[in-house]
Structures are given as structure tokens and as C-alpha cells.
Design a protein around this nucleic acid. Structure first.
Lengths: 353, 353
DNA sequence: TTGTAAGCGTTATCAG
DNA sequence: CTGATAACGCTTACAA
């Protein structure tokens, strides 16, 4: 770090530190150009940490996600960064599905960042209790903590996602449909399962209890759950898998067992991926705009930071939509026209709840 | 931020601030338990920024990557974070292939972080010149800047990767092999192309100049380059694509044109992906351990920070290896035994150059 | 062991 | 418009 301080500049020019400071803040000062020159000559750079101490701000926003390696969370982070603009930078924390690390990280963030965008691991967590809310502006993304669900959040319309998946499979003539869900203790795990189950009920489709498997949002979990379903005496003919990684696991299991998709087993996943239309067969999924979710979260957070908690918390939801490819046996007429190979623009739809 | 300071604690207990400070630093003090109690009662939390100002450290490491949305970079970041342990946290910056943003970010990092892990966009960049090297310990990952290549770096053995790809395709009987490369101005773009070209030459395989296409590491770039190759009067029968995104683009182009893989066109990519064995046909790739690269970079950086530049810079390389699946027409006997569905451990091989 | 006091580099206040 | 001075909250000589 350059060790030349504002005092060095002041001395060189022959003015007081305050004058230099004022110059830096954009005020009109007499020797503006001389000061400017001195700053360049000495290669002076303001000490950010000292500024932070004075201002009580850090210019940092913590983004706490389970695992950046999951492209979905990466998109959230990217969206958040873009929306942060020049004023704030991102401090990234991966909780790695480890509750201890999560609460450690949360406690640690107090005083180190000006705000936090947070994907909690579990709905029933008490991770937020420890930090008094006035001290750390926070916005949930993708998931919430049950007891804090009145705080700001940006979710996806998960219930609707489950509904769309169920309807799509039923429309393709399936009546033995299974669901591999995320942890029931997580927001999307619960809501997607509910949307699925309630829709089947509304459509009068029978749903044996063994057909609803709770898994853990991991590839391995999806693989094992699929294996378990395949081991049933009477198998399902279709599968709704609640996230991207479990869908990969499910596909691996099906491939390993030599089950043909969609003939022997239709499958619909949640969350799209650049490779989804290259797998065999192209994967039908429920998708939503994760980038947008991240951006909205950041936007909400910045409003909160700048506005000083004067606005009531808001709960936002982004839309989900069905991307029809081949894995449910659809023909081309179902093909979603919105899904081009190289989308030019983001569809920025969202709505307040 | 909790506004209770060390002074409040001192007052409450009736000792001096220094005593409380010493207690916090783990020294033996007389009223240790009373102080401890007061800290709890008042919910005192040390102000990190004030500490940072005193110590001249921030506890932050910048990780500058082109795009966290690329799973390869996400793995690097994750590896770096894991290796950082409890002492340092990650500040993430995406340069988004924007040279201006990159140099803006680099300049901005001075004084805000204790060190930087950096994936530069171009080899011939002057982005590093502006920050005097003593001030910001830095380690290159995956790519270097030509004029600074004597600094610390953790690369992959890209040349060897190109060689493995070329050999693999030749061994499968191909003699008309094309290469879709990354920017020749980037470290991996250049080295992979060199490994490929020189190996073909060594094997006496003719390589028409139109068969070497320079692209840009993006999906769209890979798509367009493939389309261009397919438009040639005499097409290649095999393709080595220099990164993951361009390979996706290439596969989309082949699919769109109805070219069967590997019968009409064999293809080998660079960098593995969880979905690679689910695409049609399963994708043969050159892979390397990105997580390890990130971890080694962080480890190197921390040594540098702690050791105070007393060690000479080192250039590390991680191994690449060939993961044989179906896209080059291999049969099972070629299958790499190391590639299990759910790898339990990381192969932590690396070597100093 | 403890307290006093100086200082990290900056900005805000208040007289001039 | 400018300069002296006092913070911001913490650590660390230095003396006791």
C-alpha cells in the first residue's frame, strides 16, 4: 500500500490537510492544480480503510450462498454484482451446506460489510437471530428463514413451478408421476413439492406416498433417489426433479439402468442450463431468471441501505416458465418459442407479491 | 453496526481501554472474567475497520475472474476460498471480458485488499503496470500477462493438453483435424494451440491453415467457428475445441446441422463438466483440477503475504488428463478408470515447473 | 499487570 | 476559502 498520506501532499504544497481533503471531495480550493500535481507526483492514493473508519461504511456487500459452483448460484452472484454498480463490491461466502460455517459467517459479517444478500440453508434456522437486524441490512434470495420471512426477499414462484411441471406431465398422459424434492426444510424444496402435490390432487391424479422422495439438492442425492424409485415394484412413468443437480443425478441413474427417456421414463427438471438441450434427450425444465433474482436482491438491498430502513420490507417473486424440449416426449409444436439458442435480452419480468 | 466501543466496556468495568484491548488480544489481565462479562452484557463487538486501520491489513483477498458463471472459474474461486481458511475472506470481481473494467478493478483493489488472485484477460495487457508490485501481492491463475510472467502463477499444462488431444484424435485414425482455439492473446489459447499444432507436425499430420480457427472462448464463438469449418469445401473429420463454452457452441452447431458425432465428426473438448457424460454422445475432454488450481494460488499468495516477498516467485502447473468418453468414437477399453461417477477425493497432483 | 498517550489516515466542525 | 483541532475505534510503546 502506498504509504504516502494526505499529510505528505499537504506539506509538499504548503497547505493544510483539510484543504487537500476538500480538494479530494470536489470542493473548490485555491491551489487546485498545484495539489493535483502534487498528488500525481507523490502517487498519493487515499487510504480507504481510514475513510471507512470515519464514514462507518465499508463499500462491501456480503453475498452468502451454499455453493458458487452451482451455476444457479453463480448467476445470482453475477446479477447482484452487476446491480451493485461502482459503489459496492462483493464479498463472497460459500456456506457449503454446513450450518456451522453459515452461522459463523453471518456473525462475522457484522461490521465488515454494509449489507448482505443471503441464501439460507434451512427455513428453520436461527442463524439470523444472533445478528440484530438493525445492524446489518439483509435480503434473502431464493430461500428464506421461516421466522424471518417478513424481511425482504426475492424468491422464485416455486409453487407455480411445481404446478407447471405436474400439469405438463399429466398433459402428456402420465398418471404415475414421482417427485424428487429438495429438503422439505428449504423454501424451494417445500414450495415446489407443494405445487406439484396440490396440482396432482386438483387434477385427480393418484399420488402414492412412495412417489414423493425428499432428497438434498445434490447430484448424488438425485441419483440415489432415482435408484430407489426404480427399485419400486410398480415404477412411476414420469419424474419431476426439483433442482438442477438432482436432475443430473437422476439422468445418470436412468442412463446406468438403461432406462430410455422419455419412452420408459419422462423427466422434467428445475433450472435450466446451457447444456440442457444437448443432453440425450434434450431436457425439459422449469426455469427462472437467476441473474434477475440476484439483481433485484441487490437493488432492494441498496434501497434499504440508502433509504435507512424507512421502507417496509418487500417480498418479490420472479416468474418461472416451462421450457419444453424432448425429455417428456413433447413434439415440436410444444416447443417454447422464447427459447432461442442465443438469447439476446433478458426477460426482466417480476412481480411484487 | 454495534456502536458500543472498547471504551464503553472499559468504563463499565472500571479499567482502561488498554486493559480491555489486552484481554481481547489474549493477554493475562486481572479482571479477565469481569471484562468478559461486561463484553457479553454490552454485546460488544470489536470494530474491524478500526483494527484494520491500525494494522494496515484488511483480511480480504481479491479474486478477479472473467466470469463466475463459467463453472471452471467458479471452481477456482471455491478452491481459493477453501484454502484461505478463517483468516482471509474473498472479494469477488468479474471482469466480464471487459478490459476497461479489468484495469479499473485492479487499480481499485490497492489498499482495499491484502492480496489478489488474478485471471487476466489478455497476455499483452498492461493492467498490472499501474499497480506497483510491492504494494499488492499477486498470483496469476490459469492465465498470465506476458511481461509479468516471472511473477507467481498457477497454470494448467496447456501445451500437454493440446498434445493429448491431438494424439487421441490421430490414434483414432483422423488425419483431417481442426482446432477451434481461444484468443491467441491469452495464455491457454496460445499454449493449447501450440501443443496441438506441434504435435500434429511431429506426427506428420497435415494441417491446412483454415483448420486452425481463433475464437474467443464463448459459446457463440464456438458455434460460429464450427459453422465456418462446416462450410469449408473439404471439411475436417475431427475437432479439438479449446474450452468448455466453445465446445458447447460447437455441439449446438453440429446438432443444428445434423452432423452425427462421432461418425461424421469426432470432437474433443477442454475442461470437464458434470453434464459432459450425459450429452449425446458423452463428451471426451481434456480436464484438469480447477479447484486445486485455485487452492494452490491461494496457498502461494498467503505464503507471499506472510513471508513478505522473501521467497522468489514460483510458477506452478497442474496436470491435465484425458477423459475418454464417446465423442471421439472410443470404445470402452479406452475408458479412463479414474473417472468415476462420484469421485471421493481430489487428485492433488501438481508440479513445480 | 496496568494506565497514559500517541498514532493509524481521513473527514467534519468551527473559527477565522 | 482556509487551517487548526477533534474525532472515528483500536493497538502499542512507554512509564509506572
Amino acid at each position: 500500500m502506498s504509504n504516502v498520506t494526505i499529510s505528505d501532499v499537504a506539506k509538499k504544497v504548503g497547505v493544510s490537510e483539510s484543504t487537500v481533503s476538500r480538494f479530494l471531495s470536489g470542493f473548490k480550493v485555491r491551489n487546485a492544480d498545484v495539489i493535483n500535481q502534487a498528488i500525481k507526483d507523490l502517487d498519493y492514493r487515499p487510504n480507504i480503510v481510514a475513510r471507512n473508519l470515519k464514514s462507518g461504511k465499508t463499500g462491501l456487500i456480503a453475498v452468502v450462498v451454499p455453493d458458487i459452483t452451482n451455476p444457479f448460484f453463480a448467476s445470482i452472484v453475477r446479477g447482484a454484482e452487476v446491480a451493485a454498480g461502482d459503489e459496492f463490491m462483493i464479498q463472497l461466502i460459500n456456506t457449503g451446506d454446513d450450518l456451522d460455517k453459515e452461522s459463523w459467517a453471518l456473525r462475522r459479517m457484522v461490521g465488515r460489510v454494509d449489507g448482505m444478500i443471503y441464501v439460507p440453508l434451512q427455513e428453520n434456522s436461527s442463524a439470523v437471530d444472533e445478528l440484530d437486524n438493525r445492524s446489518l441490512p439483509m435480503v434473502f434470495v431464493d430461500r428464506v428463514i421461516e421466522k424471518n420471512k417478513n424481511l425482504d426477499s426475492v424468491l422464485a414462484d416455486n409453487f407455480r413451478g411445481g404446478e407447471l411441471a405436474a400439469r405438463h406431465l399429466v398433459e402428456h398422459g402420465h398418471s404415475r408421476i414421482a417427485h424428487i424434492g429438495g429438503p422439505i426444510s428449504s423454501t424451494p424444496g417445500k414450495a415446489r413439492a407443494r405445487g406439484f402435490v396440490e396440482t396432482l390432487r386438483a387434477l385427480k391424479v393418484d399420488l402414492p406416498s412412495q412417489f414423493v422422495v425428499e432428497s438434498d439438492f445434490t447430484t448424488l442425492g438425485g441419483y440415489q433417489a432415482t435408484m430407489a424409485l426404480l427399485a419400486l415394484k410398480s415404477r412411476p412413468t414420469a419424474l419431476f426433479v426439483a433442482n438442477n443437480l438432482m436432475t443430473i443425478g437422476a439422468l445418470k441413474a436412468l442412463k446406468e439402468k438403461g432406462i430410455s427417456v422419455p419412452q420408459e421414463m419422462a423427466i422434467i427438471g428445475f433450472d435450466d442450463h446451457e447444456l440442457s438441450d444437448l443432453v440425450d434427450p434434450p431436457l425439459t425444465v422449469i426455469s427462472r431468471d437467476a441473474h434477475l433474482q440476484g439483481a433485484l436482491a441487490m437493488q432492494t438491498l441498496l434501497e434499504k441501505i440508502r433509504g435507512g430502513n424507512q421502507f417496509p420490507p418487500k417480498q418479490l417473486k420472479v416468474d418461472v416458465n416451462l421450457v419444453v424440449r424432448g425429455s417428456c416426449g413433447s413434439t415440436c409444436r410444444y416447443r417454447n418459442s422464447k427459447t432461442s439458442e442465443f438469447p439476446k435480452t433478458l426477460s426482466a419480468s417480476s412481480r411484487s407479491k
